[in-house]
């Protein structure tokens, strides 16, 4: 069966508290953090970007399992913040993990779900027998314009999933996608920051598509929320995934391990994938995980995943790389001035 062979996440150590951002713009910090359910968010070091985050996540994935990197026949990196507009991040990642040159590669963009689109592409290639393994990564140093609502959550991080058929730690039974043309959020060519439709991003965007993909999966599998141990949803804030989980019949306990947004922020393409990584960090053989990502524009990908015995076998060394919880621990807090420097928001010579 096609599934996840190994996985790894990476989150930069730097954090800024939302109250610090609120202080700069004269917003009420309690209103902001209460409304979003987010207390702090990650930001990159001066020398970190989507590519370095993707590489670190991929290397952590490979640290957990002995895989010949030359057997990785496909590398897809999903992001809204690729370092180059033209020149693939995936090539840099492929080179940095020793997978080049016999591989196919591409950068994906589908707002926050480009990473899960990469998983689907890898499933197809692996399932068709075209490649032994495919590597799908969601990584972002998320962009949000100063003083825009997005600035409170746009965060940095990523996760990498190696897809294959040989003894997966988690089987992906099925994937279902729901996609329409919905301009809820976008970034035009040449622009530094994305624009969004405010409250329009909610019902017509996030909820319509996440529920659309989830219900499609329920229809196709005949399962309901009760059949799952865990659920992970795209988490632009804490409120959206909590509300959609409830609508779909999931309990707060089911989404708890994968709800990392309160202390991480929204890592865009990394968000639902880091949530899945955090869930796999604690999952046991037999656990069933329901995942639905969301990308503005808009679409959602659902996955029906079942953890196998391999996750506790000798072949898989979960402790050989840090868990998401460990990556979130021991943060370095910065003020808005340092945040602005790290994010390149200060106009230099």
């Amino acid at each position: 069966m096609t599934g996840i062979i190994t996985y790894g996440a990476y989150i930069p150590r730097y954090r800024i508290k939302l109250e610090e951002i609120a202080r700069v713009w004269g917003d009420n910090a309690q209103d902001i953090t209460g409304g979003l359910g987010v207390r702090e968010k990650s930001l990159p070091d001066l020398d970190e970007d989507t590519a370095t985050i993707a590489v670190e996540a991929a290397r952590f994935a490979l640290a957990r399992r002995t895989i010949d990197p030359e057997q990785i026949g496909a590398v897809y990196v999903g992001s809204e913040s690729h370092p180059y507009a033209v020149k693939p991040t995936a090539c840099t990642v492929g080179e940095a993990i020793g997978a080049t040159p016999v591989m196919t590669a591409a950068d994906y963009e589908f707002a926050c779900k480009a990473g899960t689109a990469g998983i689907q592409a890898c499933m197809g290639l692996v399932g068709a027998g075209m490649v032994p393994y495919g590597l799908a990564i969601g990584s972002d140093v998320a962009q949000g314009a100063p003083s825009d609502a997005l600035e409170y959550t746009a965060a940095a991080g990523g996760a990498a999933f190696l897809i294959g058929q040989d003894d997966p730690i988690a089987t992906i039974h099925r994937t279902a996608s729901f996609t329409t043309d919905t301009p809820d959020f976008w970034r035009r060519e040449g622009q530094n920051y994305p624009r969004h439709g405010g409250r329009f991003t909610g019902d017509p965007g996030y909820f319509k598509h996440v529920e659309g993909a989830a219900n499609l999966m329920f229809e196709q599998t005949g399962k309901t929320a009760k059949d799952y141990d865990y659920a992970v949803f795209h988490q632009p804030n804490a409120k959206f995934p909590q509300r959609v989980a409830k609508t779909l019949g999931f309990t707060p306990e089911q989404i708890k391990p994968g709800l990392v947004v309160p202390t991480l922020g929204n890592t865009y393409s990394g968000a639902s994938m880091i949530g899945l990584a955090a869930t796999l960090d604690v999952a046991k053989p037999g656990d069933r995980v329901f995942v639905t990502s969301f990308g503005s524009g808009a679409g959602a990908d659902s996955f029906d995943i079942e953890v196998t015995d391999a996750i506790e076998s000798e072949a898989f060394r979960r402790s050989a790389a840090p868990t998401v919880r460990q990556l979130l621990a021991n943060p370095i807090y910065v003020d808005y001035a340092l945040y602005a420097r790290h994010k390149g928001k200060i106009v230099m010579q």
């Binding site: 070091d45 020398d47 970190e48 970007d49 590519a51 370095t52 590489v55 670190e56 290397r59 370092p83 180059y84 840099t92 940095a96």
Partner: peptide, 20 residues
């Protein structure tokens, strides 16, 4: 070792990655 950005040719030139 970690993978980091070492430098770049300004805002529009090539980005140089490497080991720190």
């Amino acid at each position: 070792s970690v993978f980091r950005r070492i430098g770049a040719e300004g805002d529009s030139g090539a980005i140089y990655y490497g080991t720190k």
